[in-house]
């Protein structure tokens, strides 16, 4: 599904951040990426999604055989790549519901499908909002406008539920969530996940992984994946921290 080969990337000012990432993600898999602050986790998600602040120095990213790096940001999304932002921005004046519908119709147009019907949109929105226990006021508000940190993260997962991406890169979706919200968001992720999709989670804590069980855990350090393992690796990191890995690296 997603194949990342020797991906190198820099900030536009020339600061190199990713120094050769290799990662293979298959349908049905959940991968967790952990690492110290500044190791390149968020950069990885942004580079794959096509954020304009970064420059790809080398390597490749293919999604189902298609070269994502040759596409613009919207085409990558339309191919099924979804990024849940660590800090979702607020866009006042763009109503949440209108935005969601435009996004869905854009993706449908890309796939040469007709626009979503009122009925289908309403049904899917209602069920996704119910799944994520979202307040009805959400419908009337601007995109993330005045949302708390937790509400923004919940809204990201709502978008994921509505857009049904092939692969979702969730960047610290658990930060800013209280205990109940964490459970709700995790349930949402598990509900969306099926054998045809994949999820990459970036997290600092085991608590999210208690709810969303990863098949693989990777440690990113100074722009490279320096260690990969199973779910037990996250437990070890929780217990011992990163010193033992950074010393080896």
């Amino acid at each position: 599904m997603l194949s990342i080969q020797n991906l190198k990337a820099s900030l536009n000012d020339g600061t190199q951040i990713l120094k050769g990432i290799n990662l293979e993600v298959k349908p049905g898999e959940i991968h967790a990426i952990m690492g110290l602050n500044g190791s390149g986790k968020s950069t990885l998600s942004k580079v794959i999604s096509g954020h304009p602040a970064y420059h790809v120095d080398g390597g490749s990213v293919f999604l189902n055989g298609k070269d994502l790096l040759s596409m613009d940001v919207s085409a990558r999304a339309n191919e099924g790549f979804f990024i849940s932002m660590q800090y979702p921005i607020e866009i006042p004046g763009v109503p949440n519901v209108e935005f969601l519908r435009m996004a869905m119709d854009s993706q449908r147009a890309y796939r040469k499908e007709p626009k979503i019907s009122d009925e289908e949109f309403k049904t899917r929105l209602n069920s996704s909002m119910e799944l994520l226990e979202m307040d009805e006021r959400y419908r009337e508000r601007g995109l993330n406008d005045g949302f708390s940190g937790g509400e923004k993260k919940r809204n990201e997962i709502l978008q994921m539920a509505m857009l049904e991406p092939r692969i979702s890169f969730l960047d610290e979706t658990d930060s800013g969530l209280d205990i109940d919200a964490l459970r709700i968001v995790a349930n949402g992720i598990n509900h969306i996940m099926d054998s045809s999709r994949a999820v990459i989670l970036v997290t600092h804590y085991q608590r999210l992984l208690d709810y969303v069980k990863p098949h693989f855990v990777h440690v990113l350090h100074r722009g490279k994946i320096v260690l990969s393992g199973g779910p037990e690796l996250a437990l070890k990191l929780e217990e011992l921290g990163y010193d033992w890995i950074t010393e080896e690296a």
């Binding site: 096509g50 954020h51 304009p52 940001v73 919207s74 999304a77 979804f82 866009i91 854009s106 978008q159």
Partner: peptide, 12 residues
């Protein structure tokens, strides 16, 4: 903001 909207499939 442009990037955010694009990241959901909306054209530039």
């Amino acid at each position: 903001s442009i990037y955010y909207l694009q990241s959901r499939g909306i054209s530039f």
